[in-house]
């Protein structure tokens, strides 16, 4: 229980940091291409974290477990 929730908190903090970094990056970088690729990378990283840790994507491949 506590372990699972701790992990969730850690992921949430990483996500929050990424969001803030994303924002500061976008506001301060003037090159359109660099900004686009940087934001894309950050978005993909955030999506991957949510999909794997919050949505438990791995469980799809372990159907024999109850949850």
């Amino acid at each position: 229980m506590n372990k699972a929730m701790q992990l969730g908190m850690i992921i949430a903090v990483i996500l929050a940091v990424l969001t803030v970094v994303e924002y500061i990056f976008a506001v301060n970088v003037d090159d359109t291409a660099i900004r686009f690729y940087g934001l894309s990378g950050a978005a993909i990283a955030k999506a991957a974290l949510i999909v794997w840790y919050f949505m438990h994507f791995g469980r799809v491949f372990r159907p024999e477990e109850a949850h």
Binding site: E22, A26, R35, F36, L39, A43, K46, V51, F54, M55
Partner: peptide, 25 residues
Amino acid sequence: VSGVVMYWHFVDVVWVFFYPALYLV
């Protein structure tokens, strides 16, 4: 509960892409 929460996270993932595309690029 799990199903709805998964849906909620999915909607969040969508916003992860929409937010930079609409506000930041």
